[in-house]
Write a protein that binds this DNA or RNA. Structure first.
Lengths: 133, 133
DNA sequence: ACAATAATAAGAATTATTACTGATTTTAGT
DNA sequence: ACTAAAATCAGTAATAATTCTTATTATTGT
């Protein structure tokens, strides 16, 4: 995988935050995590670096919830469950390989797919037991 | 399926536009289609009615491309291919049933999924042959 | 047709995100 | 370690999608 060439404390901290959480954060959340460590960081820096990390593939946008992009540092695409109640984006195991589907798209339509996204929507266990709303 | 209670010419026209296309339009595109018929329609009306149709389930948001929500009037969830080049959102056949996956989510995590979204990303046939960019 | 209710247009407001600018930090060669 | 070049940064301004507000107009049940 490519990585960004240059580094800086803040850039590294941003990536570190994304890598060390499994909560699929938004730009705003990442900002709120880095802010206490580097109080003079600006939200623009977070957005700029997210864009960079997306280009190199170090980070991917896994979903958009309520108009906010959500990110993940995990390399290989996997399946998510989004709770429509608490807006949590949760990793779940991928049921079956999609390689056949990739081939079929190429064969049947001439579509050259390079990745995919499988997302289930509903209510997570916590919300089902009334911890939210 | 629920439907909206009240009707109006514009409201009906909006739904009609979504139903009679397979291009998974954005709010702006729907607006551009209804505008020639009802020149005094406003973009706000399109957004308000889309929100209503989403609530009743008459319309679903199938994807977000470049920050714009894309809609579809098809009742049952199906699979999409999004061309990252021309931003087209194209229907494709769904490879296999996901009922087992729904059961597993319930059993393994207590997640109550009610729908899902499977999307492949890549380059469509047209764009592969250089018709765009 | 009438009145009550809901829908609409227009534009202002909000929110997430991006672009710009001048000052600072990092890097790479010495 | 020193220095110059390049990249990065904070802060601000700008943009774009969407939502909200208010006065007006259309729809529905009677």
């Amino acid at each position: 995988m490519k990585t960004v060439q240059k580094h800086s404390k803040k850039r590294d901290a941003i990536l570190q935050v994304i890598r060390s959480t499994d909560c699929h954060p938004s730009a705003e959340w990442i900002y709120s995590q880095v802010k206490p460590i580097y109080p003079d960081i600006s939200l623009g820096t977070v957005y700029r670096n997210l864009a960079l990390f997306e280009e190199t593939g170090e980070v991917i946008a896994v979903a958009t919830v309520d108009g906010q992009k959500r990110y993940d540092a995990t390399a290989d695409p996997h399946t998510h469950f989004i709770c429509e109640c608490c807006k949590d984006v949760i990793d779940v195991e991928t049921p079956q390989p999609f390689s056949e589907m990739y081939k079929a798209l190429q064969k049947d339509h001439g579509f050259e797919a390079n990745h995919h996204s499988l997302t289930f929507y509903g209510k997570c266990d916590k919300c089902r037991h009334g911890e939210n709303i």
